[in-house]
Amino acid sequence: MKLIGKLTIFLCGTLLIVFANKFPDFGDPHSPAATHLSPYFIEHTMADTSVPNIVTSVLADYRGYDTMFETTVILAAGLACFFLLRLPEEEEKEIYFRHVPTGVTIRIEECGAAPEDSEVFQRIDSQWVPCDIIIRSTSRLLIPFIQIFALYVVAHGHHSPGGGFQGGVVLGAAVILFAISHNLRTTVAKIGEKSAAIMSAAGVFIYAGTGALCLVLGESFLNYGALAPILGTDRVMARSHGILIVEIGVALAVMSVMIWIYYNLSSAGKQDEGL
């Protein structure tokens, strides 16, 4: 089996190296992409959409369909993880508590009376039980800044590198950092699985809904210029604002899908104890 794998890699690698010579050189001005496609975007993006970052306008405006279905693929990945991993809730056999003032760990057997989860008694995982105040405080300090940076990445995607995907992933990573530094139950109590699922669908809905709204207003799907009467601006600015709206949809979908996948993956579908 390992031999077949190595043979396949070797074959694919050889093919890639042999045919890499046929590609146009890096930055070749006479390559097909540089003679037909790029000049149009470089010359018309600012006039068409008033977005300085050409990549953002190509991703969310000129190639809007592509990004919409990318977002749908992310949602499908979240759903696949859910259907493959999620287990029904079951009665737990043994649960563990830590008595915080003394640091004593208490094991409660099946049908035992468990204390309330409070400042004194803290529910802990059976496998991996960190109680590190340095990690908790550091991540508690870091998370707000990570989230603000993520919002900046989403909102400033018109002018600098970034956009919905990157900002959404960073937002999701902030929540995952919280889950790693505290525990999974605390995180699930803050952002439930249901709300993660609904938010991921809502993100895709925002994107597709914006496109459908353009259709209702009498123009083609995802042609944000049609939104000009609703937004109260001219067609060029309407395209810029349309890009921002769909980026927010993408960020929402990507963030919640990342959280959702993490919940299912880290707890093997039980969503009570996890990494």
Binding site: G162, Q166, V170, A173, G274
Partner: peptide
């Protein structure tokens, strides 16, 4: 290569979240 948007995506998705997913699966 000057593809800063792609680099950003690679850093967040590839190096960040997918590593966490792999570690969570190994756990």
């Amino acid at each position: 290569m000057g593809a800063v948007d792609v680099a950003f995506t690679e850093a967040t998705v590839g190096a960040g979240v997918s590593t966490v997913f792999c570690v969570a699966a190994v756990f």
